[in-house]
Simulated assay, not measured.
Amino acid sequence: MKTVIYPLNYAVNAIKNSLHQAEDSLYRNGGAYSDEERLIAEHSVERAFIGLLILCEHLGLGHALQQIEGLFQEAKGHFLDYKMGPDGPYLIWGEKIRHYVDGIAAAHGLETTSAADITALKEIIKRTLHVICSPNLFPALPASKADIHDRIEAILKCHFDDLKRTPVLLRPPRHFAADSAIPSLKTLIEYQFVDTLPTATLVAEYISAGIHSTCPQWEHLLRVVYETRPFLSEEEWIASLQDGEPGRPYSIIILTGDKSTSPNSMFGRLSATLNKVRR
């Protein structure tokens, strides 16, 4: 039976997302759940089990299906049992589910996000510049990191329906919090807003410090830097990235508002005209 890759990819990601929800809750409270948190976490593990059972049946994996059915019955009433591992607590049944899911994903070539997928994501982000700076859509240019985050994320959500805002990461590196996450691409996104040369220098130093490695379940980290005007050359930004942690799957995208909002650009002329009308 021929398996269609995209639906399979969605099914695998749905199971993993359910596990992430339960694991994030465990990581936050160390097993001391409130009644509501416990109910949500238990439901997440149960949903992951059911998703895995349906997936195995769809793929015709009879032997695995029988094994997982046995595990499911054994786990009922104990979905949130956990142990302490070298990296912190982990859900016992979540790990058992993940073994099967990872095996299925690897067997169908879903373990690694393709370079083409990441390239496509980068192109989408680069093309957001004219939209996030458009005077037809916004009363003012981006003036903070929150503006950049809100505007770009709204566009990405149209392309990636599994996008998560400010995701809670399992065992996150110190001093790092992702702004957006796309589980289907195993990618985290971090936004930076730069409006002065000193800020540009600080952001470049932050990037080159290399203190924020990606989390185990994420393969890529994209840093999106929005400059109100060019403060550093693209070569300088890329150099700061390369100074960080060689070989790590990091990328940087520079968006410069000056390029789309200068007086000579279409958006700049339109913005100036609208400002005159508003006065």
Rank of each mutant, 00 (worst) to 15 (best):
H108T: 06
R248H: 08
Q242Y: 12
I252T: 08
A106M: 04
L221N: 08
V203F: 01
L61A: 14
G109N: 02
Y10K: 15
A146Y: 13
R28S: 09
E36L: 14
W237T: 05
G88M: 06
I182S: 00
E69S: 15
A32W: 09
E37T: 05
F49H: 00
D117K: 12
L202Y: 06
K157Q: 13
D81K: 00
C56H: 05
T112I: 11
V12H: 07
L202F: 10
P249M: 01
G268L: 07
S260C: 09
T228I: 14
A106P: 06
H63T: 15
T3K: 07
I125Q: 03
G94T: 00
N275Y: 05
S25T: 13
A64Y: 13
H212S: 09
F231Y: 13
Y10E: 15
L170M: 09
K76A: 14
R279N: 14
T214N: 08
L121N: 05
G62H: 09
Q21D: 14
Y250E: 07
W218D: 11
S18K: 10
H130N: 13
S180T: 10
R47S: 15
E46Y: 07
L19R: 04
L53C: 02
R278G: 08
V131F: 11
T201G: 14
H43F: 13
P183N: 02
Q217S: 11
K76I: 06
D117T: 05
Q66C: 12
G257I: 08
E219M: 05
V4G: 07
K145M: 07
M1L: 09
R248D: 14
V45P: 01
W237H: 03
S265M: 05
L8M: 11
A178D: 03
A22T: 07
T214G: 15
R47E: 15
E69M: 09
P135E: 03
A14D: 15
R28P: 01
D102F: 06
K76T: 13
L55A: 01
G31P: 03
T3R: 10
E36I: 10
G62M: 05
E111N: 11
Q73A: 13
M84F: 12
A105I: 08
L141P: 12
K186C: 06
